[in-house]
């Protein structure tokens, strides 16, 4: 990366980060409130009735899944919204008419969106930690390196997919559809609120086709130290998907998909 590209990349990345940092009411307050509600209703109220899952209190069991849910949906939403809004109002032309390389543009959008995912994930972990610690015991982090690796990979993956979403969307409704009808069902059926072991064998096999299962499983392994799928395999598959998604982003930018006539 030469000086022009580095400066251009850093400028675009800074612009993207400032966009969400300066609007905490729109970017950080909603996941904070939503997750306080999740932990209160699912964790505390229903958790009392559920008891333990895989030998841990239910509220602690769902914490890694809620962190994943918040992190990936915010990473996806940030990239898809930023690109689509720029396309809608055509100010993305400021970037497209610059000498910044297509790869530089993509990395700036992906990394800044992944950062938002990580910050929201950290926020949710903080909320969960506060509630769980107050009610039961401190939240463990059994495998911190795995936790960091999984969080990095899944936020990068969903930021990269968000770039694709932002390029494919034709109007704002398309963004809502992607988030509500694709992303959330996958997360909710991704073993956030239940253990794979509780499912009948046939459904368990079906669930293994859901990539969210591997993400939730991996982050849960990082926090709680147990996994229902081999975390190394999960990490490798997710890292491969992330590389493929970033390459797809660069290819779409080079082709001008959704960006040029």
């Amino acid at each position: 990366m030469n000086r022009v590209d580095l400066t251009g990349f850093l400028t675009l990345a800074k612009r993207e980060v400032l966009r969400f940092v300066r609007r905490p009411r729109n970017t950080f307050a909603p996941p904070f409130i939503t997750n306080v509600l999740y932990f209160s209703v699912f964790g505390v109220v229903l958790g009392e009735r559920v008891g333990t899952v895989a030998d841990v209190p239910y509220i602690l069991f769902i914490l890694p899944g809620l962190v994943v849910l918040g992190a990936v949906s915010n990473a996806f939403e940030n990239a898809s919204f930023s690109i689509f809004h720029g396309r809608w109002n055509e100010y993305i032309h400021e970037v497209l008419t610059s000498p910044l390389s297509y790869a530089g543009m993509v990395w700036a959008y992906v990394l800044s969106s992944a950062l938002r995912g990580l910050l929201v994930g950290g926020l949710i972990a903080g909320v969960g930690w506060g509630i769980v610690s107050a009610l039961y015991r401190p939240v463990p982090v059994e495998h911190p390196l795995y936790l960091i690796a999984f969080m990095l990979v899944i936020t990068l993956l969903f930021a990269s997919l968000g770039v694709v979403g932002g390029l494919l969307a034709e109007d704002f409704d398309d963004l809502t559809v992607m988030n509500q009808f694709i992303l959330r069902p996958l997360v909710f059926f991704g073993a956030v609120f239940y253990s794979l072991g509780d499912l009948p064998p046939a459904l368990r096999q079906v669930s293994l086709a859901n990539p969210m299962v591997y993400m939730v499983n991996g982050v849960r392994y990082g926090f709680l130290g147990f996994a229902e799928v081999d975390p190394r395999l999960s990490l490798a598959v997710l890292a491969g998907m992330t590389v493929a998604a970033v390459l797809l982003d660069v290819w779409l930018f080079e082709r001008g998909y959704g960006l040029t006539d």
Binding site: V4, L12, E94, S98, P99, L100
Partner: peptide, 10 residues
Amino acid sequence: EHKAGYHGVP
């Protein structure tokens, strides 16, 4: 400033 930055201006 952003536009100049995209063009590599410090």
